[in-house]
């Protein structure tokens, strides 16, 4: 079995990058959701959100949220939406980082294509 030490260091570094993206994404998302619920609770006296996300794509959803944020419309609902969007984008960013790693660091065409295919498909479904 030929596992070279040079490969190990590169891939262990990649492990740390992937792990950190996942951890940061989940923590940020949970904080936003919790803050949204707490704020809504204080303002309305009820922690239950009552609105729908009717047939939207993740990117439309994100763009609408960021636009609302830019307009200074910070509301509990916006925090919850952002929390869900960050959560959904967490594995997406992990795949994006993997494509960059295999293409730029490893120069591994095979795995660049594999991860690129996953990224392209996910991008398509998130935009559709």
């Amino acid at each position: 079995m030929a596992v070279r030490d040079a490969d190990v260091t590169e891939r262990e570094r990649m492990d740390v990058v992937v792990g950190s993206i996942l951890l940061a994404g989940v923590l940020v998302s949970l904080t936003l959701v919790a803050a949204g619920v707490a704020w809504h609770w204080m303002r309305e006296g009820n922690p239950r959100f009552d609105y729908t996300l009717a047939g939207t794509t993740v990117f439309q959803f994100l763009v609408a949220d960021v636009r609302a944020l830019a307009d200074g419309e910070l509301r509990p609902r916006l925090l919850l939406n952002l929390g869900i969007a960050v959560l959904v984008l967490t594995p997406y960013l992990r795949v994006l980082a993997s494509v960059v790693y295999f293409a730029v660091v490893e120069h591994d065409l095979k795995y660049t294509l594999f991860t690129g295919f996953v990224l392209a498909t996910l991008t398509y479904t998130l935009l559709r």
């Binding site: 619920v37 922690p47 959100f49 609105y51």
Partner: peptide, 11 residues
């Protein structure tokens, strides 16, 4: 996806 349900479920 119902956000009202999603919030407590995710947490």
């Amino acid at each position: 996806i119902d956000p009202g349900l999603a919030a407590p479920v995710i947490l």
